[in-house]
C-alpha cells in the first residue's frame, strides 16, 4: 500500500505547506474576525508581493533582504491605505465583495500590463537542499517553514500578549463596548488590514522564490484562505491554525498518493462539503 517513503514525504511536505497556509490564512481570518470584512482582493496582495519582489531583485538588482523588508513595508502601508480609502466606507457585505473583487481585477490587470501573462521564473534565494527524516527538502522550503512558524508565534504573541492585541480582540468581540473603553475602532481596523496584507505578502515571499509566478496566482490562494477560515470557524486563531493543517495535509496527501491533478480540487471540495454539511466549521460561528 503506502510505502514508508511516501508517508514520510507527505508528513514532511504536508507540515511545511500547512505552516505557510496557516500564515496566509491567519491574515484573512484576522480581517474576518476583527473587522467583519471579507476581502476578495486578499489573494491579490499575495500576487502583488510576489511581483514586487521579483521586479526589485531581477530588474533593479536590489539585495534579497532589502527587497524582503521593502515589500513587506509596502504591503503593510497598502493595507492601511486600502482601509482608509475604500473599506471604511462600505457597510454592506455584498457591496464589499463586489468592490474588493473589482479592485482585485484592477490590480491583476495592472500586473498583466506591467509584466504580461508570461510565467516568470523567480530566482533562488537559498540554494541547496537538506534531508529531513529521509526526505530531501529544498533549503528555501525549510527556511520558509522555520520563518512561518516563527511568524505564527509572533502573531500569537501580538494578539494575545500585547496591548495592541487586546485592542484588536476587544474590537473583535464587541465594537460598541470597545469604543466605550476608549479604543478607536477605525485605527485598530486599519492596523488589522495592514497586518493582514503584510501577512499575505510574507506568505508570498516565503513560497514564491524558486518557482514561477503568474498574475492569476492569487485566486487559488484566496479560495484557500477562505476554505481554511470557514473550516476553522471564522476568525478564530487556533481554529484557523488547525484548519490550515487539515487543508495542507489533504492537499499534499492527494498530490502524492493520488494525483497532483486532483490536489487543488480535493481541498476545495473539502471546504464545500464543510460549508454544506457543517456550516459552523470545526468550531465556531455560523455562516448561514
Amino acid at each position: 500500500m503506502i510505502t514508508s517513503e511516501a508517508a514520510a514525504t507527505v508528513l514532511v511536505y504536508g507540515f511545511i505547506t500547512s505552516l505557510v497556509y496557516a500564515l496566509f490564512a491567519e491574515g484573512f481570518s484576522l480581517i474576518f474576525g476583527v473587522a467583519r470584512m471579507i476581502d476578495a482582493a486578499y489573494g491579490m496582495w499575495y500576487t502583488a508581493a510576489a511581483y514586487m519582489s521579483f521586479a526589485l531583485v531581477t530588474v533593479y538588482n536590489i539585495p534579497s533582504l532589502v527587497t524582503f523588508f521593502a515589500t513587506i513595508a509596502a504591503l503593510f502601508a497598502a493595507g492601511f491605505v486600502y482601509y482608509w480609502a475604500v473599506l471604511r466606507r462600505i457597510k454592506d457585505h455584498i457591496e464589499m465583495i463586489m468592490t474588493t473583487f473589482l479592485i482585485a481585477l484592477v490590480i491583476q490587470n495592472l500586473i498583466v500590463l506591467l509584466f504580461t501573462n508570461f510565467p516568470w521564473s523567480t530566482p533562488v534565494v537559498l540554494p541547496g537542499s537538506t534531508l529531513v527524516f529521509g526526505v530531501s527538502v529544498f533549503n528555501q522550503q525549510l527556511a520558509a517553514a522555520i520563518a512561518a512558524s516563527t511568524l505564527l508565534i509572533l502573531l500569537w504573541l501580538l494578539i494575545y500578549r500585547t496591548k495592541v492585541g487586546l485592542a484588536i480582540r476587544s474590537v473583535a468581540q464587541d465594537l460598541d463596548a470597545a469604543v466605550c473603553v476608549g479604543i478607536r475602532p477605525e485605527r485598530t481596523m486599519a492596523l488589522v488590514l495592514g497586518l493582514s496584507t503584510a501577512l499575505a505578502g510574507l506568505a508570498s515571499l516565503l513560497v514564491t522564490p524558486q518557482s514561477t509566478i503568474t498574475p492569476v496566482l492569487g485566486w487559488p490562494m484566496l479560495t484557500l484562505a477562505f476554505a481554511i477560515v470557514v473550516l476553522g470557524g471564522l476568525g478564530d486563531y487556533r481554529g484557523t491554525l488547525l484548519a490550515a493543517f487539515v487543508i495542507g495535509y489533504v492537499e499534499i496527501a492527494v498530490q502524492n498518493l493520488v494525483s497532483p491533478l486532483y490536489s487543488g480540487a480535493a481541498s476545495l471540495i473539502t471546504v464545500l462539503l464543510t460549508l454544506w454539511l457543517r456550516p459552523k466549521g470545526i468550531f465556531g460561528r455560523s455562516v448561514e
Partner: peptide
C-alpha cells in the same frame, strides 16, 4: 449553497469554477 449567507454564497461561486477547471 443557497442556504448560506450572501457573502459566503459569493465566495462559493468563486470556488466552483476552480474545481470544475481542475
Amino acid at each position: 449553497s443557497l442556504k448560506l449567507r450572501g457573502h459566503f454564497f459569493a465566495l462559493v461561486t468563486l470556488i466552483i469554477p476552480i474545481i470544475a477547471y481542475q
